[in-house]
Amino acid sequence: MEFFLQQLVNGITLGGVYALVALGYTMVYGIIQLINFAHGEIYAAGGYMGVILISWLFAQGFPPFVCLGAALVLAMGYCALLAMAVEKLAYQPLRQSSRLSVLLSALGMSIFLQNGLMLTQGVYDRAYPTEMVQGGFELGTVMISYMQCIIVGVTALLLVALNVLVYKTRIGKAMRATAQDKTMSALVGINSSRIISLTFAIGAGLAAAAGIMVGLYYGSVRYDMGFVPGIKAFSAAVLGGIGNITGAMLGGLLIGMIEVFAAGYISSEYKDVFAFIILIAVLYFMPTGIMGENVDDTRV
């Protein structure tokens, strides 16, 4: 039981991070049917922006929560702008082209950004000041570190904020409308270009936050850190039902849980295999994912 609970805590932490990254994939796919390969790199850029800001702020003697808060806000902002720039330069000019062209453009962007990170930040791992947040507490026999609390807390906060934005505000309504029917939403007065740009920005902001928390949790970042979590997060989005925001959150948590439990009860070396077996099994019985797809497939 103790083992189970400990793995549960680990799974929630990992799953939360996947969920944050998965949202960016799902939102972008939902709105323009693009698998944004560059999303993993945005997450890595967030991790790097975080290490630069946190190291500097921490060295200036600011308290940990100030460092973390400021770094989160600034890195999220930076990555939002970066993603908007990517969209404007690499995807928007191809809006009328075939989906394959945009997909290739996304692949190219991913390579460009990853190599850019390598050139500017070097090939070595970059250390986060992990001494900033240390220790933890035992809940019964389950060990919970403060870092895990922060990750779960920030993730929950961001997910709630996203839900408020999407379901309770006019901008959220415009986003949902654009995802359902781009032409129609333009005809009720929504600037779809702006909404698409905004969707990229929001997804990137969430990914940046995930990048920072992963960096703090594992202690370091590297230029190629975006690749594997990117694939896992995309799988999570598909598992939950691509285009579906609730689905991405659920899918992220599930993939995290499956990985941790497969590693805990079966074998670490097969954890990815299990994650993907479950993905395939779910898609076999529920081709549109657990929560159902939500994609604009209408044409004028």
Binding site: R170, A174, G189
Partner: peptide, 16 residues
Amino acid sequence: MVAQHCRTRVGVLGAV
């Protein structure tokens, strides 16, 4: 409500 998008102003930050 979504149809009044173009008649309103508040940005993302204000909304969040």
